[in-house]
């Protein structure tokens, strides 16, 4: 008795194996000659993508790829030559400056870190000292900073986040963020959590602010772009691009474009503070 289906099955299986193993594609030939690779901070990433798009529109033969990975990855990638440009949403640590002395830092924009609370919180402003107490877990009730007698629920970013690193540097002054803090893995998740959790407080990039949450004044200064641009608002951090050594060629062209009027206009329209 012949069983044609077994043969058919065999053929299908073999075909699957062959295509599965031999699925090697070669796209080397289609590679664009003029390429820039960017890697690093997820805060800088959307801005860098917009700046790349605008540049590529003017220079259709150029291809700029922007990858995430975080600020630490950006610094390492630039220093190790893995990427042409690294992105970091915090300043370089002393240890990093020593380890990679030939890294060039280009500040392409400033970004404010807003302190946000649930809209139901009556407090309108806090000092940096009070913020430190709250995020370190020393101040646990809103009553201690002029609000209702309710427990403060602290929301923060995860370890390794550039926004968290910048917040720690600008506010915490060496103190640790309390272990009781709810940790969320992105700016968007922090906003969502604070917006939906009564008596909660958190921090995020200015670019993510909207009316879902209430932004607090810090040291009596309202969190507006104008105040941040004029350096009155205390929680401002640079967004950096890094190159290994002095940039040249295409990389220099793109950096000039970013720091020029066109690039800085994009910086402004994306919700960040221009450097000039």
């Amino acid at each position: 008795m012949q069983r044609p289906w077994t043969k058919l099955l065999g053929v299908i299986l073999i075909a699957l194996l062959i295509t599965g193993c031999g699925g090697k594609t070669s796209n080397e030939s289609s590679q664009v000659q003029k390429q820039i690779s960017v890697a690093g901070s997820t805060t800088v990433q959307p801005l860098a993508e917009k700046l790349a798009e605008a540049f590529m529109e003017k220079h259709p033969d150029v291809e700029i790829t922007v990858q995430g990975g975080g600020s630490s990855v950006g610094i390492k990638s630039a220093a190790g030559g893995i990427a042409d440009i690294g992105a970091a949403s915090r300043e370089l640590k002393e240890s990093e400056k020593q380890k990679y002395p030939d890294l060039q830092v280009f500040v392409i924009a400033y970004d404010g870190i807003a302190i946000i609370v649930h809209p139901g919180v009556e407090v309108d402003g806090l000092t940096r000292k009070q913020l430190q107490g709250i995020f370190a877990g020393k101040i646990t009730s809103w009553k201690e900073v002029g609000g209702a007698d309710k427990t403060i629920i602290v929301v923060a970013r995860e370890e390794g986040s550039g926004t968290r690193a910048a917040f720690e540097e600008l506010v915490m002054g060496g103190k640790q963020i309390t272990g009781q803090a709810i940790l969320q893995p992105s700016n968007g998740a922090v906003k969502k959590t604070v917006a939906s959790t009564p008596y909660s407080i958190g921090f995020l990039s200015f670019g993510y602010l909207d009316e879902e949450v209430k932004a607090l004044a810090v040291d009596g200064v309202a969190p507006t772009k104008e105040n941040a641009a004029q350096k009155r608002y205390p929680l401002v951090r640079p967004l950096n691009l890094l190159t290994k050594g002095t940039p040249s060629g295409l990389v220099k062209e793109w950096l000039d474009f970013i720091l020029g009027p066109e690039g800085q206009k994009i910086v402004q329209s994306e919700g960040y503070i221009p450097v000039k």
């Binding site: 975080g70 600020s71 630490s72 995860e158 370890e159 390794g160 893995p185």
Partner: peptide, 18 residues
Amino acid sequence: SQARTLTGNIAVEISYAT
């Protein structure tokens, strides 16, 4: 109480870890 799971530990931090 809040907590973190083993799986969550990996997923939350891997994108920034070096």
